[in-house]
Amino acid sequence: MSGPGNKQCDTGDGYSFAYLDEQTKRMIRRTLLKALSIPGYQVPFGGREMPLAYGWGTGGIQVTASIIGPDDRLKVIDQGADDTTNAVSIRRFFEIVSNVATTEQTAEATIIQTRHRIPEAPLQEGQILVYQVPQPDPLHKIDPRENETRKMHAYAEYGAMQVTLYEDIARFGRIARTYDYPAMVNARHLMSPSPIPKFDNPKMENNPAIQLFGAGREKRIYAVPPYTSVRSLDFDDHPFEVQTWKGCCALCSSTVSYLDEVVTDDRGGRMFVCSDTDYCNKRQADRALTTETGGIVAPDEGAKL
């Protein structure tokens, strides 16, 4: 496709800038504005087939393709990491079809497309977080018939969801939902935050950045505008709480980030490391800098131990 520095609309292979044709972008852009106007409401849109498979981020990709421009700097993460294969693949896609600059640093990015995580570093005004969403309707598990769930959303009949959560409490003594934990947006629409761990739910509330959600296969787009209330469902006697870990990250010693468990050998060896690779690398670099006088060499970007 197009060579570096080429900012023509045509990518040289007959495809448009950012892959989508202008009519499709216009349709998605109109959808995005409606989504921001009605926080948490799932707007149906004429989702297109993309050159990546459904379930692999086509909703997020269509949203990103409709908003991205030559001045943007794109970051793509999957499981919090920039170097997971699908994140690499999606980043490459945008490098090829839009020639846009990319980055692994959260603070530098104007658009961050994500699957399953919200970065640990706080987001700022002017940044846009694009979520890849497999199943946009939090009520889908309660009733798979879209006709029915649409009515529940229309009349804010969310009792069934509360009952489902309460059944967990009756059975397990706690709400047994650990990711894709439903949240109420602007005190009106029940929303799936996508399969992020519930650890990330509080980050959605009153965030200065724009949060856009794209579900390609289900053909829905929704949004959380900046400075918007996002309340995770809970009960007075069982308030919402997030995951915590006993230890800290084995690489950067963070005690406040979401940790992945890594199997280190076949004898039960385990270690915990940050899922957000940019956050972890930055902390390791900072630490190396402060202890440089002590003769410790900064770890390389492969984060080897």
Partner: peptide, 11 residues
Amino acid sequence: FDTQAVFRTLM
């Protein structure tokens, strides 16, 4: 590119 830039302002 003009519509992209204008859209970002609208958004």
